Deep mutational scan, measured.
Amino acid sequence: MQNSHSGVNQLGGVFVNGRPLPDSTRQKIVELAHSGARPCDISRILQVSNGCVSKILGRYYETGSIRPRAIGGSKPRVATPEVVSKIAQYKRECPSIFAWEIRDRLLSEGVCTNDNIPSVSSINRVLRNLASEKQQMGADGMYDKLRMLNGQTGSWGTRPGWYPGTSVPGQPTQDGCQQQEGGGENTNSISSNGEDSDEAQMRLQLKRKLQRNRTSFTQEQIEALEKEFERTHYPDVFARERLAAKIDLPEARIQVWFSNRRAKWRREEKLRNQRRQASNTPSHIPISSSFSTSVYQPIPQPTTPVSSFTSGSMLGRTDTALTNTYSALPPMPSFTMANNLPMQPPVPSQTSSYSCMLPTSPSVNGRSYDTYTPPHMQTHMNSQPMGTSGTTSTGLISPGVSVPVQVPGSEPDMSQYWPRLQ
């Protein structure tokens, strides 16, 4: 039975679970980093996980050691009161100082060594604690504590007292930064006198190289990059290397530039699409467009005044059976039934097929058609009795279509119309 579990990581490298990497692998990681390889490249070359490479390099940059820390136990506290007071002093002298600059000053002034120097995250935590204590304490208590930490007896009751030896409130920041720059020169002199001055200088240079600022491109470089971006948004590694040799930039910087440029292009394309949609959409909808001609068919113009009344309900007709019959029939052209047409008796099958359309009241044959006459024609229609054979009435077949029909004066039988409509 094995005491430890061995495995293979996602890159194909072998590791022992819970145990640190061998010293030979750690040394190779540092050597590759000094030669300029990126952590992701080191991870692929040595088949070590990216997190492990970053952790080893980060500890090497901070402490200069590649040895693993002790497994188990607690780390001794490195942010001692003396170190905290120095950090507060540096922050007062130059409020814009960075944590890694404070760390360098602690090393250069001999406050800490490589073994007990606090990390950048520890210094940031100390600065946050100082800021929170400043908010919790009152103004007087804060000034007393700062005077105690600074070891001075001057008056701290006013704002300019934060910067000793100065009279203009805006000047101390520059003086403090100048003092810090002077301390940086002392850093070089002190570290050069040490035993491991060369190694420390190499480590600091490598650290500065990794902690780079934003790349500033010249106009020629920007023009070359934009020209390549117009050709393709995704250049391959050969195109990037050719462009890197042409404009004297690292291939990694060119790759990052193209990634950022593609993101910018997507944002601009989104804005262009929004403007295009806004320009195509009308600002207001016309009133006429809300009524579609496919839904509402136009009603033909009436030929006679009587045809303006298109349904039985508008003429005072309360018989719903006839109203439904007229509205359900398709529109037909106007025609006239003459008196000489043969009077065919209704076929029983045809009569039964339209039995649902006729009223059940037996008085329908005896009703006159003056009910369908509009009010303004009552006088004219009353002067001509319906009993004469020459009287013409208008029957409504569908809305908007008038059918003048000659009705025999002897017997106005409704059943004569249905064979004609089939």
Rank of each mutant, 00 (worst) to 15 (best):
R67Q: 12
R59L: 07
C94Q: 11
I29W: 00
T113K: 13
S49G: 06
P20A: 06
V53F: 01
L130K: 14
N50V: 12
T113M: 11
L146K: 12
I45K: 13
I45C: 08
R147I: 14
G36R: 07
K86C: 15
T80K: 07
S119T: 00
D115S: 14
D140E: 07
D144R: 11
Y90Q: 07
T113D: 11
M148H: 15
I97W: 09
T25D: 05
I29D: 04
P118G: 05
D41C: 04
H5I: 09
T25A: 07
K55M: 03
T25G: 04
E62W: 06
C52E: 00
K134I: 07
L130E: 11
M142N: 07
V53K: 00
V78Y: 03
R128F: 03
I66D: 00
Q2G: 11
L130S: 13
L130M: 08
N9T: 02
P20Y: 03
Q10A: 13
G138M: 13
S54L: 04
R77Q: 00
N50F: 14
G12T: 02
L106Q: 03
Y60Q: 00
V126A: 11
I71H: 15
T80Y: 04
Q10V: 06
L106T: 04
C40G: 06
V53A: 01
S122N: 02
I117E: 06
G72L: 03
S6T: 14
S85A: 11
A79R: 05
V14D: 05
S43V: 04
Q10C: 07
G110W: 10
L130P: 08
S108V: 12
E31P: 00
Q89P: 00
N150G: 09
V14E: 07
A37F: 15
P39L: 07
V120I: 09
C94D: 09
G7D: 08
S122K: 10
K28G: 06
N124E: 03
G138V: 11
V14G: 06
L149I: 09
G58M: 13
S132Q: 10
A139H: 11
L149K: 14
R128G: 02
S49I: 02
N114V: 12
Y60F: 15
P20I: 01
W100C: 07
K86Y: 12
Q27I: 11
Y143E: 14
N116M: 11
Q89T: 09
L11H: 06
T113H: 14
K145W: 11
R69L: 12
T80W: 02
K134Q: 11
E31R: 08
K91I: 03
C40Q: 05
N17F: 15
Q47A: 10
D41N: 07
S85G: 12
P118I: 07
K91R: 05
I123E: 00
S35Y: 11
E109H: 12
G13P: 00
R125L: 05
D104V: 10
V126I: 15
L107Q: 15
S132R: 14
S6N: 09
P20G: 02
S121A: 06
R26A: 01
I87W: 02
M137D: 10
S119W: 00
Q136L: 10
L146R: 14
N50A: 15
G13I: 01
A79V: 07
V78K: 15
D115Y: 11
H5P: 13
S35F: 11
R128M: 02
A139P: 07
N50W: 01
Q135G: 13
L11I: 01
A79W: 00
S121R: 04
A79I: 10
N17T: 09
G141W: 10
G51E: 04
L57W: 01
Q27P: 02
R44H: 06
Y60P: 03
I29G: 03
V83W: 00
G7C: 15
R19P: 02
G51A: 12
N9P: 04
M137W: 11
G58D: 09
I97Q: 15
S24K: 09
N124Y: 11
G72S: 05
V30R: 06
A37E: 07
E101T: 05
Y60V: 00
I117D: 08
R77Y: 04
V111P: 13
S119K: 03
R77V: 04
M137F: 12
Q10D: 04
I123A: 07
V111F: 06
I123T: 05
Y143T: 13
C94F: 09
V8P: 04
R103M: 04
T80I: 06
A37S: 09
I56T: 02
N150L: 10
G72E: 03
E82D: 10
A37L: 13
R77L: 03
S35T: 12
R26K: 02
K28P: 02
V83R: 05
L32K: 04
S122L: 03
P39T: 08
M142V: 11
G12H: 02
G73R: 07
Q2P: 12
R69C: 06
R26V: 01
K86G: 09
N150T: 11
R147D: 11
G36F: 03
A99E: 01
L32N: 02
G73P: 02
S24C: 12
V53W: 01
S4V: 11
L127K: 15
T25C: 06
K91F: 00
A99N: 06
A99K: 03
I87T: 07
V53H: 02
V126L: 05
T63Y: 00
M137H: 11
Q27R: 13
V53C: 04
K86P: 03
L46N: 01
G51L: 02
Q10K: 15
A139N: 14
R147N: 13
L11E: 04
P76S: 03
N116W: 07
P118W: 01
E101D: 06
E31T: 08
I71L: 07
T80M: 04
S54P: 00
I123L: 03
S121K: 00
T113V: 13
G110C: 12
V48Q: 00
G72D: 04
N50D: 03
Q89E: 09
Q135E: 14
T63P: 00
D41G: 04
M142P: 12
P81E: 10
Y143S: 13
V83M: 03
G18F: 02
R19M: 06
K145E: 11
E133H: 12
G12F: 02
P20F: 02
G73A: 05
P81Y: 07
A33H: 15
S65N: 05
G36T: 03
L11K: 05
P76I: 06
S96N: 13
L127A: 09
C112W: 04
D140A: 11
A79M: 14
G72I: 02
D23K: 07
K55E: 02
E31G: 08
K75M: 05
T63I: 02
K145F: 09
L21I: 05
S43I: 01
S74T: 04
I29E: 04
M137R: 14
S96F: 08
E82G: 09
G138P: 11
R26G: 02
R103A: 07
S132K: 15
N17I: 15
D140L: 10
Q47L: 14
I117P: 08
R77F: 03
I45A: 14
K75V: 05
A131R: 15
Q27M: 14
K145S: 14
L21C: 01
R69M: 09
K86D: 07
S24A: 13
L57K: 02
E62G: 07
I102V: 05
V8N: 05
R103Q: 09
I56K: 00
T113W: 09
N3D: 09
L149V: 13
E133G: 10
D115Q: 15
P76M: 03
M142K: 12
V48D: 02
G110H: 14
S6Q: 14
D115C: 10
K145R: 11
N150P: 11
Y143I: 12
D104H: 09
W100M: 06
Q135A: 14
G12N: 02
D23Q: 13
Q47T: 04
